[in-house]
Computed example of a mutant assay.
Amino acid sequence: MSDSYKKTVEQFTEIINARHVNHLDKVLEENVEKSENSKVIYKNIEEAREYYSMEHEAHPSENFLLTQFGEEDQDNHRLTAILSYNKHDYATTYTFSPLGKIQKINSILQEQH
């Protein structure tokens, strides 16, 4: 399953970087939740679309970059990765639904460049 989890996260990143927020339903569950440094950023797919649209407006030349994949926890349907965005690196944990879509994203700021 790790390959499919990695592919899903890569596809998610590609959709965001291509500014195709209307295609997020291909990789995100309807009730997806993202938190960053323990603060909830969005709670569903519509809020996710709004969030990434605002990020693109605020930082039009920035892209999300997956710099490293970590270990997958198959028992808990999780994959970790390091994500770089806007001169910040985030340790990110993706939790997947039984359908293989991303249901929860938890990011913690690791360092600034």
Rank of each mutant, 00 (worst) to 15 (best):
S2T: 14
D3L: 13
S4A: 15
S4N: 13
Y5N: 08
Y5F: 13
T8D: 04
V9F: 07
V9I: 01
E10A: 08
E10G: 12
E10S: 14
Q11T: 10
A18D: 15
A18W: 05
V27N: 00
L28P: 02
S35D: 11
N37G: 10
N37T: 08
N37I: 10
S38M: 09
S38F: 13
S38R: 13
Y42R: 00
N44I: 02
E47P: 01
A48G: 00
E50N: 09
E50G: 10
Y51K: 07
Y51N: 06
Y52Q: 00
S53W: 08
S53E: 12
M54L: 15
E55L: 15
H56R: 09
H56P: 10
E57H: 13
E57F: 13
E57Q: 08
H59C: 08
S61F: 13
S61L: 11
N63K: 15
L65F: 13
Q68D: 05
E71Y: 05
E72F: 09
E72K: 15
E72Q: 14
D73H: 05
D73Q: 09
D73T: 11
H77I: 07
R78W: 03
L79Q: 06
T80M: 12
A81V: 08
A81L: 03
I82F: 11
L83K: 03
S84P: 06
K87A: 12
H88R: 09
D89T: 09
Y90S: 04
Y90Q: 02
T93G: 02
Y94V: 01
Y94I: 01
Y94M: 04
L99S: 15
G100C: 02
G100D: 02
I102F: 04
I102W: 00
Q103V: 11
Q103I: 10
Q103F: 07
N106Y: 07
I108D: 10
L109M: 04
Q110Y: 12
E111C: 11
